[in-house]
Simulated scan of single mutants.
Amino acid sequence: MPGFLTLQGRRALITGGTQGAGAATVALFRELGAQVLTTARSRPAEMDEAMFIAADLTTAQGCDTVADAVRGRLGGVDIIVHMLGGSSAPGGGFAALGEAEWQAELNLNLLPAVRLDRALVPGMARQGTGVVIHVTSIQHRLPLPEATTGYAAAKAALSVYSKSLSKEVSPKGVRVVRVAPGWIETEASIRLAERLAQEAGTDVEGGKRMIMDALGGIPIGRPSTPAEVANLIAFLASDRAATITGAEYVIDGGTVPTA
């Protein structure tokens, strides 16, 4: 069908693809015809072993393992989607973040993308085509000082790095774009809403409202779904977005109050 969005025949690496928006992106890419590898520390029982690489991407060795597997199994890569990210930092503001907490935020939210790009993007440049998508966060523009200072700073660094990379490799045929989600309604976020609700003596919908209030509100009245985030990523990875590079696309239901 003319104009139909397809990723047929594309070789893709999607990090953090075993849950949430990452899992939704893996499923959609496969549906659209891509050959997909994904990675996490351990493989879910329901995931095909042939499409999975077990590795700890917070280490340089783990990134090397994934890059070697991509070259060995796929013979190279056409699309890289850096979904990996998150935070386990304690609350309490900046003073609660010691050396270990800061290093953990960088090791999870910045350095895996830097290391994998360093290993795989030169091959894209040699073939004269490719797409790199860095999943950042609205937190780099809208940090929550009580709990996300380190995460937000790491995502801000990822965004600046991504922009710099785009300026270097776009003339070589490699597009680099960013996707900045707001709150995504994943299983983990629902568990958070349930915990907040229990602590506040309300129901899970009340817990969700507490999260939205902490973000300053979501004008559309709900978080994004993993599938909605995956749809945006698939579009940006496809030929329909062939002249888009160096840009950041926010998907947050209107949470960020400025353009």
Rank of each mutant, 00 (worst) to 15 (best):
G3V: 11
G9V: 11
G9L: 09
G9H: 14
R11F: 08
G16V: 05
G17P: 04
Q19E: 13
G20C: 07
G22A: 13
G22M: 13
T25I: 09
V26G: 03
F29K: 00
L32A: 06
G33Y: 07
G33A: 14
G33W: 10
A34T: 05
A34L: 09
A34R: 02
Q35D: 07
V36N: 03
P44D: 08
E46K: 09
E46M: 07
D48S: 14
E49W: 00
A50H: 08
A50T: 13
I53M: 06
A54H: 03
D56S: 09
A60E: 15
D68M: 05
G75N: 07
V81S: 05
H82S: 13
M83Q: 13
M83T: 08
G86L: 12
S88M: 10
A89G: 09
P90F: 04
P90D: 02
P90Y: 03
P90I: 06
G91Y: 00
E99N: 08
W102R: 12
Q103V: 08
L106D: 01
A119Y: 02
L120F: 07
P122I: 07
G123E: 10
M124L: 11
G128H: 13
I138N: 00
Q139C: 07
Q139E: 08
R141A: 08
R141D: 09
P143A: 07
A147N: 13
T148G: 05
T149L: 15
T149G: 10
G150P: 03
Y151M: 13
Y151D: 09
A152W: 03
A153M: 14
A153S: 15
S166G: 14
S166I: 05
E168L: 15
V169P: 00
V177D: 01
R178G: 02
R178Q: 15
G182V: 12
W183K: 01
A188I: 10
S189R: 13
S189W: 07
I190N: 02
R191I: 11
A193P: 02
Q198K: 14
E199M: 09
G201V: 07
D203H: 11
V204A: 11
G207S: 08
R209T: 10
D213F: 06
L215D: 05
G216R: 11
G217P: 10
G217Y: 10
P219M: 13
P219Y: 11
R222S: 09
R222Y: 10
R222I: 12
A234C: 15
L236S: 01
A237C: 15
S238E: 08
R240L: 15
A242K: 06
T243L: 14
Y249R: 01
I251T: 04
D252R: 00
G253H: 03
G254Y: 05
G254F: 07
T255S: 14
A259P: 06
